[in-house]
Amino acid sequence: MGVCSIRGHSAESITDEILKIYLSIKDLEDEDILQGNSNYVKNINQKLDELITLPIEDEAAEAILNGYRFNQLFDTIAAFRALYTIKIETEYANTILASNDPWQVLQNFSFYPNYCQLVQTEYQGAELKANDTVVFLGSGPLPLTLMVMCHQHGLKGIGIEQDEQRVELSRKVVDKLGLSNSIKIIHGNHYKLPLSERVELIMIAGQAQPKKEIIEQLAKALPAGTKVSCRIYEKGLRRLLDRSILVDLPANIADEFNESCRIHPQPPVNNTVVFAVKSSAARS
């Protein structure tokens, strides 16, 4: 592998750092990340942040990631990041519940500006309007996307979350913020779809996994004309967080969706948003 200059980092040193992060987390149980030594997992996450934010061209990043052919490594790192995000969101959800000014606390959340811009992108990209209903797969303990969408754009939201404890916590937060009439959180996963309600957009979270399985189920279950959006990482080394980019779907599945547009991120947002429309009827 050739050497590339990235603030003094070579491709080899970046590969070594990816491996070090993997080795530091590969034996961790989910509860070690969610409930364990906060400094240990915080330091790993900080190292991961430093790595994925290195200023590197997309082509150079892809060459590095393709050069290290261990899918388990990527899956383990992506799973760690998803669980660490849940840890942070859980802690912040509890902070909101304990506050006398929950909206101020929510707006002070460091990622709040990112979500405001990302939601604006999805609202415009899907051509939504007030009172439309959206579904968010993988809504988590702090369903920020739905909160911002419903509060700022007058939408109705349905969050689907597969962990029962996160479902209960997110329902309490939604109620604390006075959004219970706009947002409903249900227990389940992508196999819950389609719902009985009319839905204008189904959103797939950036860290929702496994994406291939999710897309395959949606291709089978959704009626023709259903709008879908998916948040993916495709810039620089952020691709490390999700190797299942949509272009890797089997042709028979990819053909079930007509991509309408793809909006690339502008700071502070890091996700590309892909919009697509289901092209054929649901299959039995």
Rank of each mutant, 00 (worst) to 15 (best):
Leu23Arg: 08
Ile96Asp: 05
Cys116His: 03
Leu65Ser: 10
Lys211Arg: 05
Gln162Thr: 07
Trp103Arg: 13
Lys212Tyr: 07
Glu234Ile: 03
Ile253Gly: 00
Ala221Thr: 09
Leu28Glu: 01
Gly188Tyr: 02
Leu137Lys: 01
Leu97Met: 04
Leu28Asp: 09
Asn100Ile: 06
Gly188Ile: 03
Tyr68Ser: 12
Val134Trp: 00
Ile183Pro: 01
Ser196Glu: 15
Gln209Glu: 14
Ile14Ala: 01
Glu62Gln: 05
Leu73Ser: 10
Ile96Trp: 10
Ala98Met: 12
Asn71Glu: 15
Ala254Trp: 00
Ser182Ile: 07
Leu249Arg: 02
Arg283Ala: 12
Leu144His: 01
Arg239Lys: 14
Glu89Ile: 06
Glu59Thr: 09
Val174Trp: 01
Ala251Pro: 12
Ser110Ile: 13
Met147Tyr: 02
Phe80Cys: 06
Ile214Gly: 00
Ile86Met: 14
Ala79Lys: 07
Gln46Tyr: 07
Leu218Val: 06
Val105Leu: 08
Gln104Leu: 14
Leu193Met: 14
Leu51Arg: 08
Val135Phe: 08
Ile33Val: 13
Lys156Tyr: 11
Arg238Met: 14
Leu142Thr: 02
Gln117Trp: 09
Glu161Met: 06
Leu118Phe: 09
Met147Ile: 15
Ile56Trp: 01
Ser139Pro: 05
Leu28Met: 13
Val41Met: 08
His190Ile: 11
Ala205Asn: 09
Glu29Pro: 03
Asn71Met: 11
Ala61Gly: 09
Gln124Cys: 10
Ile183His: 04
Val228Arg: 00
Ala60Asp: 12
Pro194Asn: 07
Arg7Asp: 15
Ile56Ser: 01
Gly138Ile: 04
Phe136Trp: 04
Ala60Leu: 08
Gly125Arg: 03
Ala82Ile: 05
Leu237Ala: 02
Glu122Thr: 03
Leu241Arg: 00
Gln104Tyr: 08
Lys176Trp: 05
Phe257His: 01
Thr226Glu: 10
Gln35Val: 05
Met149Leu: 14
Lys172Met: 12
Thr53Tyr: 06
Gly2Arg: 11
Ala60Gly: 08
Asn271Asp: 13
Thr95Asp: 14
Gln165Asn: 15
Pro210Lys: 12
Gln207Thr: 11
Glu168Pro: 01
Asp132Glu: 07
Ala219Pro: 03
Ser279Gln: 08
Lys220Met: 09
Leu246Asp: 00
Gln217Glu: 12
Asn100Ser: 13
Gly159Arg: 00
Arg7Tyr: 10
Ile202Met: 03
Glu127Ser: 13
Ala11Phe: 06
Ile88Lys: 12
Ile77Leu: 15
Arg198Trp: 04
Val3Asn: 13
Lys227Glu: 09
His9Glu: 15
Val105Gly: 06
Lys211Asp: 03
Glu127Tyr: 04
Ile232Phe: 04
Ser13Leu: 12
Lys211Trp: 01
Ala78Phe: 03
Phe74Val: 01
Pro113Thr: 11
Ala221Pro: 03
Lys20Tyr: 08
Leu218Met: 13
Ile183Ala: 07
Thr90Ala: 15
Ile25Lys: 00
Ile214His: 00
Leu73Arg: 01
